[in-house]
Each structure stands twice: as C-alpha cells, then as structure tokens.
Amino acid sequence: MGTFENLVSGDNETAILGISERYTGVWGESRGGASGVYGRSPGWHGVYGESDTNTGVLGQSKTLYGVHGVSTSSTGTIGESSSGFGVHGTSGSNTGVVGQSTSGVGIEGSSQRGDGVVGRGRRGVVGTSETYQGVFGSSRDNAGVVGESEAFHAVFGVSRSINNAGLFGGNTGGGWAGMFDGRVSVSGNLYVGGDVRPLGADVAEEFDVEEGATVLPGMVVRLGEGGGLEPADQPYETAVIGIVSGAPGFRPGMVLDTGGGGRRMPVALVGKVMCWVDADRGAVRRGDLLTASPTPGHAMCADADRATGSLVGKALAVLHQGKALVPVLTMLR
C-alpha cells in the first residue's frame, strides 16, 4: 500500500480509527529502517495513548530503547499518573526508557500521591554528568535528598580529586552546614576551617578502671596500683588525676582515647564538670580551690599552701554543708 490520506475538518472527527476487540487497534511496521508509526501535531500531542485499565502507551525493544523521547526545546518524555506509573518502559537487553533534550528536561515523572520517578535494579537510580551534578534533589519543605540502607551506609560519597571532598555540606542561610544525630567516626585527619563548638562542657579522656573498683561520674579519682582509676580517699594526695566526666548537669563535649576495651571511664581534662563535694569538711564558696578529701570520690575545699600537685578544680557554686554535686572548673595542678 502506498500513501493513504484521510482529511477531516470537524472538531471531534478522527482521521484514522482502529478498533480491536481482542488485540492491537492500530499496528504500524517499517522494514526499511524508519518509524513504524509516526505522529505529528503542530499544537498538541503527536501521539496520544489512553487506557482505562492498562498502559496508555507501551514501548518494548529487544535490543534498544523501549521508548525514546526527544525534544529540541522542552521535555523529551513526560509521564503522569494519579495512582500508577507515569512512564513504564521495559527492555530485554538495553535501556527501558530514554529521554533526551538539548535544552530542557530529558525525562520528567510526576505523581500526585506516589513517587515521581522510581528506579529498580543493581543501582536503583544512576545519574551521570560530564560537567555538572550527576543527581540533583530539591524540596521546599523537606529533605532535598534522602538515603536509606538496611545494611550499609545510607549516603556514600567518594571523590577522586585531591582538592575536593567525598561529602560536602553548605548552608547559604547562615545555619549549620552539617548535623549528626549520633556518634561520628573519623578514621583520618580532621581539618576544621571555622570554630569548633561542641555542645558539651568539657574535654575528657578515657582511662581503664581498676579491677573491683566502683567509679561513678562526678567522682574524684586517682591511679591505683594496677594503673586504673579508683576513688581517691586521701586528703591532698598527689596520685589524684581528676574528676570523672558525665555526672548530671554537664556532659563531655569531646572524649579522647575511646578505642580501648574493657571497663573505661572519661576523666575531665579541660572545662566544666559536675563533681561530688563534701562540705562537712569545710563550706565551699565560688572560686574556692578543691582537692581530694578523705571521703571516697569526694573533693573538699583546699588550703592553697598544701594543694600543690593535688588540685582538681575551682568551685563554681556554693555548698555550705553536706555532700552534693557541685559545678567545677577543671584545674589539674
């Protein structure tokens, strides 16, 4: 058959209508390397497909693209669905759906209640670019990009450039560039270009606890005969090494040497820490120097002339009598 032309001019008239009770309504085939079916419209859809219970338009290929959409100024392929797939393309050996555009969107997926685009495979979604972002995510009210994994890193970033980072975060509004809810592990060097502002109050370092010793946060501790921590119980003893960090009121902002095994506790090196104080051995005022006391794990007000080598800190609050936790500025001297 050669060229067939059927010209109609009515608003609701169809030039070609194909109806089948059980199979394809319209079939087009080309054996010479051109399109099997070609549709063109100067002001509306070139090809339009609609179905009440199945796919509006289906493209399949055994060796190349199932559906190929090309646009020189706008969207190559657009798929929309209120409850199902916006676009579904399958291929036996190559790409299911390919969209190309020289100046607009290659592929766009839109859904009112579901996902705009879903990818499943060895890699669910792959984005590549020679000069710009491989994958871009944007949201007005929620996360731009979310990564989740049951058994590996939720987000994994690698850079092959010596001058760039595997993971980069910025904030143009003046807020946080990065936030972590949980522990953070750094296996290499850590470089910080701005201020480091931990939310905790002291810098601490972990030590082993002496076997059989009861060591609790806020206690004044010394090194025992085995080299581990135990409560200090001698006044002005020089074996004292500080106050155990983590008692209610303050928490450590940084803890060093956390890689050891066994039972370990952090001892405050610098900063504010809550300390058990025994004021029955002398009332404590703000600014008083503190040292080890005969009460196990407690500090007491120190005589500056006797305290060399045994000071643990300076009191930041008043305790007239009794035993209680008192905020202390760590001072080992």
Score class of each variant (00 low, 15 high):
Arg306Ile: 03
Asp278Tyr: 07
Arg285Ser: 15
Glu13Asn: 07
Pro294Ala: 11
Gly28Tyr: 14
Pro294Glu: 13
Gly170Cys: 04
Gly228Ala: 08
Val118Trp: 10
Arg306Tyr: 06
Ala283Thr: 03
Gly309Phe: 11
Asn164Gln: 09
Asn171Asp: 10
Asp257Phe: 14
Ile16Met: 14
Ala315Thr: 02
Val220Cys: 01
Ser129His: 07
Gly89Gln: 11
Ser111Thr: 08
Gly92His: 11
Leu190Asp: 00
Thr14Ser: 08
Thr295Gly: 03
Lys314Tyr: 12
Ala15Ser: 14
Met219Gly: 00
Ala201Asn: 06
Ser293Asp: 04
Gly56Asp: 06
Leu64His: 12
Ala292Lys: 00
Ala154Ile: 05
His68Ile: 00
Gly104Asp: 11
Ile16Thr: 14
Tyr191Leu: 08
Asp278Lys: 04
Ile241Cys: 04
Ala143Tyr: 15
Arg160Ala: 06
Leu216Met: 06
Ala213Glu: 06
Trp176Lys: 11
Leu216Phe: 02
Arg222Asp: 02
Val47Thr: 14
Gly194Ile: 10
Tyr38Thr: 15
Ala304Arg: 13
Val105His: 08
Asp202Asn: 15
Thr295Cys: 03
Gly89Asn: 09
Lys62His: 11
Leu58Tyr: 13
Val70Leu: 09
Ala213Tyr: 06
Ala299Val: 04
Trp44Thr: 10
Ser71Ile: 04
Glu150Asn: 09
Tyr23Thr: 03
Gln60Pro: 04
Gly104Ala: 13
Gly18Leu: 11
Met331Leu: 15
Leu316Cys: 05
Asp115Pro: 04
Pro42Ser: 14
Ser161Gln: 02
Asp233His: 07
Gly124Ser: 02
Ser245Asn: 00
Glu237His: 05
Gly169Cys: 10
Met274Ile: 04
Asn94Pro: 00
Gly49Arg: 13
Glu13His: 08
Gln60Tyr: 15
Arg122Thr: 08
Ser111Lys: 04
Gly188Tyr: 12
Met274Asp: 01
Arg285Asp: 15
Gly116Val: 11
Gly188Ala: 09
Ser30Arg: 11
Arg333Asn: 05
Arg120Asp: 10
Gly218Thr: 00
Phe136Val: 10
Asn142Leu: 14
Thr55Glu: 13
Ile78Pro: 02
Val220Trp: 01
Leu216Cys: 01
Met179Lys: 12
Ser9Leu: 07
Ala279Met: 02
Gly218His: 02
Ser9Ala: 06
Gln112Gly: 01
Gly169Thr: 12
Val209Cys: 02
Thr95Ser: 09
Thr295Trp: 04
Gln100His: 07
Trp276Glu: 00
Arg183His: 06
Gly10Ala: 10
Gly66Ser: 09
Gly119Asn: 03
Asp233Cys: 03
Val57Gly: 00
Ser51Cys: 06
Trp176Thr: 07
Gly18Lys: 12
Val326His: 02
Arg40Ile: 13
Ser30Asn: 15
Val277Asp: 02
Val215His: 03
Asp52His: 05
Gly56His: 07
Met179Asn: 03
Phe4Trp: 15
Asp303Lys: 09
Val125Lys: 03
Ala304Ser: 07
Gly18Ala: 12
Pro327Ala: 13
Val220Met: 02
Gly227His: 05
